[in-house]
């Protein structure tokens, strides 16, 4: 996979707290710490997987990076510029460079818009095309790029299947020639046999594009993330707990949560399954409204010690860029 050493995105101590308000005057009564100190770097052309269970903050990270949310704190340095606090009016040029692919192919396309006009929308918003003919040609190329017949441009979303709709969404995300695409669970709503088509398409687009594409791939399915990513970050309750290459993650998971997550995903081979060790975590993910003290996992962790309750473990390098946030590992 082509990958330069140029850093395209550097996220530093990102924090996103959502206020919980009550009453007519919207008094703030609590805070949901959806993301609480997330840092990572992304090289140009790289794919970073963000994996975790619902409520771990992976989607929020994606929405902060694309500046759909205004982060509470931290830096988001995209192509050398800190965009974390950029005001709304300066965001348009960032929106052109960072695009999103959504999870639900049904609700992410406007039902009253034709497929062609959905895909062409960014071209109009950013005034990319010179004239009608240029616009039409661009949309046509985008359709072909994602494997759709340009003859389908006048059709409406409900006429397409889930996989085809997701292709329309991908074409839209490519229209403005972005350098970073945030894929938020792009395959989890699709049927098994269609998922592979979309995963391959995303991989192919990376090699085909004129500008080098960088992906942040958000998913709860570890096997999909592992398949598509160059590096994987495992998130738990608003923090990254482990970050390394997929190979290393599978062969040498250090964080107890990663180990449990890996063991929870069954392999479609009964003979391997018979031999696999199963680590079942007790209980459920605590609420981010009231997170546990110290390491967020300590109540469920099989190897927790009393000090885990007090110290928030920092993300530290255990060699070869394998980062882990655990004082016991």
């Amino acid at each position: 996979m082509s990958q330069s050493n140029e850093i395209i995105l550097k996220v530093n101590d990102l924090k996103m707290y959502f206020p919980v308000t009550r009453g007519l005057l919207r008094k703030k009564v609590a805070e949901i710490k959806a993301v609480d100190g997330v840092s990572f770097e992304l090289k140009k052309g790289e794919t970073l997987g963000l994996v975790g269970e619902s409520g771990c903050g992976k989607t929020t990270v994606g929405r902060c990076v694309s500046r759909l949310y205004q982060p509470t704190g931290g830096e988001i340095i995209f192509e050398g510029e800190d965009i974390a606090a950029l005001p709304e009016k300066d965001l348009k040029r960032i929106r052109r460079k960072v695009s999103l692919i959504f999870q639900d192919p049904y609700s992410s396309l406007d039902p009253r818009q034709s497929a062609g006009s959905i895909v062409g929308e960014p071209l109009i918003v950013h005034k990319i095309t010179k004239d009608k003919i240029d616009y039409h040609r661009r949309v046509e190329t985008l359709f072909q790029l994602v494997g759709l017949d340009p003859a389908l441009m006048n059709r409406y979303p409900h006429e397409f299947s889930g996989g085809q709709r997701q292709r329309i969404g991908i074409a839209r995300s490519l229209a403005s020639n972005p350098s970073l695409i945030i894929c938020d669970e792009p395959v989890s709503a699709l049927d098994v046999s269609i998922q592979a088509q979309i995963i391959n398409l995303l991989l192919d687009l990376k090699e085909a594009g004129e500008t080098e594409l960088t992906y942040i791939f958000i998913a709860h399915d570890l096997s999909v993330v592992k398949h598509i990513s160059d590096r994987v970050a495992v998130m738990y309750l608003g923090r990254i707990v482990e970050l390394t290459t997929p190979q290393e993650l599978y062969e040498n998971p250090l964080h107890p949560y990663t180990q449990a997550l890996l063991s929870a995903v069954p392999v479609p081979d009964p003979e391997i399954e018979e031999k696999r060790e199963r680590i079942i975590l007790e209980g459920e993910v605590p609420s981010p409204l009231n997170p546990p003290s110290g390491c967020a996992l300590h109540q469920r962790c099989p190897i927790a010690k009393p000090e885990c309750r007090e110290v928030i473990p920092p993300l530290s390098d255990r060699g070869g860029g394998h980062l882990v946030a655990c004082i016991r590992a």
Partner: peptide, 19 residues
């Protein structure tokens, strides 16, 4: 823009237009 890939969804594959 790069070259066109294999077309997966052709006009004929998509359900006939619902009026």
């Amino acid at each position: 823009m790069p070259e066109a890939k294999v077309i997966v969804a052709k006009e004929a594959d998509v359900e006939p237009r619902i009026n």
